[in-house]
Design a binder for these strands. Structure first.
Lengths: 234, 234
DNA sequence: CAAGATCAAACTGTCGACAATCGACGATTA
DNA sequence: TAATCGTCGATTGTCGACAGTTTGATCTTG
């Protein structure tokens, strides 16, 4: 008789994934604009604030470092990354390169189920547009693009996307409002999906180029407008 | 009167970068095939062996984890990543996607100096081919491709390349000898450089596709031939 | 004999401590 | 007055320790 694991394992709460939790909290704080770019991340401070010791904080910081949100100056500590205009260009250049490919792969792997997922996400985008919640809008936007990478089926590509996205979320979070007309965003996703459904590589690339290129120009413009980062508190 | 800093600063010696050193040692051990795929990385063991405490080892391990060389099972420790055939496909798929773009960008930024660097590296490849040192050959091969990414001028792209390369180095290091004819490798780089010098995007992409595609098929074949990793010692 | 229970050793996750170093501020000197 | 030096608090890098888990082996039981 088998007395194995109690019926259905649920959210196997990791209990002790302090590092992960700290990392999430830190990411959150950075993206939300507390911990502004250039500010110092004092290990002891974070540790005390979260009620843990410095060890998990350090490991989490190393994670965020590799992820590009923090930079480490030996003997000096971790600092929140500062973005310049050319960082935006780098990020979008790479993102465009990857998402083109992802979209083409996604088209190749598309099933009725995954297609529906994409469609539903566009619906969500429209619904979110009514909420006047820019952060949420940006989030749902990413979810759409992330779906494409997921469907493409390359885990490393997905991880790369997540890394780029977390950098972008940070920048965009700091800029504040991104688009004037949220519904406009929602609509501009439709031709991308249409192209993927149609499955013409060239058309896919063209539409992805147009869509991402638009965001690139927009974000680039905003970053150049408000260059000296707000309150880069030491 | 200005008595500023003594003119010529020299190589700011890093002294204490234990984490970095440990990370390098670990990477080395993994790539060289000690620490075979699937083997457990016991923190205390590594720490004792390197004469340091567990803290730096853990942080270094987190680094390698984010880099894809290790995987972390909570409460269970770090394990050396195991590669399957589809990992090879993922890596090369992404690498091809990125290097195409990098090569096109490199062509756009090419200066006489950078062009010479590339040419010289091809010369080095030919010289190395005589040495019968497969590891070295692979290394110089990467250096050529890395140069292209460097010239492309996107730091994030370069980091991505390095990450992919370290995974590949591990796989290839485990396979042992890669090509039969080292001079063959050296020669196949020439059309790539020629295309970059010519500056025709399509021709560049075509040659990069051919070159990387060749390696992809080759590595894929070898991995499929020797699938159960050698000595996956617990 | 096989499946489950029991137990000990090994290992991880986390903590608090300590020395070395950094940064700032005030003292010193030309 | 302005630049340099010395000192002091704050912070990082590293370590050893301890509790809770996991692993593997041994023992028990049907």
């Amino acid at each position: 008789m088998r007395t194995i694991s109690p019926p259905v394992g649920l959210p196997a709460l990791n209990e002790t994934d302090l590092v992960g939790q700290v990392a999430r909290r830190l990411t959150e704080a950075i993206v939300q604009g507390r911990l502004p770019p250039g500010s110092k991340v004092v290990e002891a401070g974070i540790a005390r604030e979260l009620g843990v010791s410095r060890a998990p904080v350090r490991e989490a910081a190393r994670l965020l470092e590799q992820q590009g949100l923090l930079v480490a100056n030996p003997r000096r500590g971790f600092f929140v990354r500062q973005f310049a205009a050319d960082d935006i260009d780098e990020i979008y250049d790479l993102r465009l390169c990857v998402e083109r490919h992802a979209a083409v792969l996604a088209a190749r792997n598309l099933t009725p189920e995954t297609r529906d997922k994409l469609r539903r996400q566009i619906d969500v985008l429209h619904e979110t547009a009514d909420l006047d919640d820019p952060a949420r809008q940006v989030e749902e936007d990413y979810r759409f693009h992330r779906l494409i990478c997921e469907i493409a089926g390359n885990r490393r590509m997905l991880r790369l996307f997540d890394d780029l996205a977390s950098e972008l979320r940070m920048v965009i979070g700091l800029i504040g409002r991104l688009y004037d007309d949220p519904h406009e965003i929602a609509r501009t996703h439709e031709p991308v999906l249409a192209a993927i459904e149609a499955g013409h590589p060239e058309r896919i690339v063209a539409h992805v180029d147009y869509h991402i290129g638009h965001a690139w120009r927009e974000v680039g413009r905003l970053v150049r407008e408000i260059p000296p980062w707000p309150a880069a508190a030491k």
